[in-house]
Design a protein around this nucleic acid. Structure first.
Lengths: 206, 206
DNA sequence: GTCTATACAACGATAGAC
DNA sequence: GTCTATCGTTGTATAGAC
């Protein structure tokens, strides 16, 4: 799981032109993005509006962050790349999607020791705006795409059910540190929880 | 190690009998309990130690709070009675235990609007001590007893898996407000999530 | 007198030392 | 195994408020 490169892109240019401060543009975008995401949420936030608030061209968002998703991830300090995660989850047989979700999730967050997960949860619990941002981003970008790709009906309910179990797993393993989940092997949790997600995605819900 | 001299009560003999201001005793116990629970967690907290810190008899814990559990619930402002919840969950056929857990959980927290759940989660996320307290209490008092009552092997893993899904459900419905879980009918969620908990409790885990 | 907050002793369970 | 210490809890007597 490759972490998102939040720093400068390769070929750090300190060449001609009036402004040597590319980092300033990046920081201005981040600040404007945090304000806009906090104010109107992920869905309603507009790249053009953020860029205007930062006083730069909207193309700078693509240049520095690869798009709206990346800008959000950088603004929220989320330490993984959803595109990579999605690819990894969706690559393979449909029957093992549930297990791949659990394994991917645990691999990503275990690598960070869970610290960022706790920080994310803290902001979600403390700020209504953070809850809205995370809700919309997770629902739209992560879960929605998975569910749309593998489930036939009730995409949103199936996706939300998956989300609830995954979030609960993160809570138990990284925040509450509930044993034996906190210390369990990844394989153990994959075997136990994978079928749950699989049923949420493709099984009967009643 | 501590020889008690009953023949010569040294100076301060505590007065027995009713005195005005029983609330003072109650409040002193609550304050002492919060300090002790925060310092050493639920397991290592001692009723005798809390009572001593409050300057009263240990039996006062039972008188005012019904026991250590009740004292903890009062100190943490947890707005439900685990004894009632446990009875409700465990009363009935084994095959429907999973569904009863979901229904009971949703009924209890829906009645409060989810506010206390958010508050509880907030303290868990913000304070390591709160996380420890909740972890030990939930593991010991709630989950452990359910799993011991209905599952045959791997009690603690089964219990923790149930806990993770229930916590995740609460996160989705009350904190993140992830649709359609946030607005779903109780019956819908019972039908969708109940089988998950049932498998965690009595089904195969691999 | 009744009611109740209180104190003290003791019980069963449990864990560790020997 | 036995002994010991400590735990949460309970039973009951006492003293003060009413």
């Amino acid at each position: 799981m490759r972490p998102v490169d939040h720093s400068a892109p390769p070929g750090q240019e300190r060449r001609r032109g009036r402004r040597p401060g590319g980092q300033q543009t990046r920081d201005a975008l981040l600040a404007a993005a945090r304000a806009e995401f906090a104010e109107v949420g992920f869905d309603q936030a507009r790249v053009r509006s953020i860029a205007a608030a930062a006083g730069v061209d909207p193309a700078m968002v693509n240049h520095w962050f690869g798009g709206k998703d990346g800008l959000f991830l950088a603004a929220m300090d989320i330490p993984f790349d959803p595109a990579v995660v999605l690819a990894r989850v969706l690559d393979g047989g449909l029957e093992e999607t549930g297990e791949r979700i659990v394994r991917t999730f645990l691999t990503v967050w275990d690598a960070t020791g869970g610290g960022p997960f706790v920080a994310l949860l803290r902001s979600v619990a403390n700020h209504e705006t953070a809850a809205r941002m995370i809700r919309e981003f997770v629902s739209e970008v992560l879960i929605g795409r998975i569910a749309a790709a593998v489930s036939t009906d009730q995409h949103r309910l199936r996706a939300a059910l998956c989300g609830s179990q995954v979030v609960g797993l993160g809570m138990a393993r990284y925040v509450i540190r509930l044993e034996p989940i906190a210390s369990a092997e990844v394989d153990t949790l994959v075997a136990a929880i994978g079928p749950t997600l699989q049923r949420y995605l493709t099984g009967p819900l009643a």
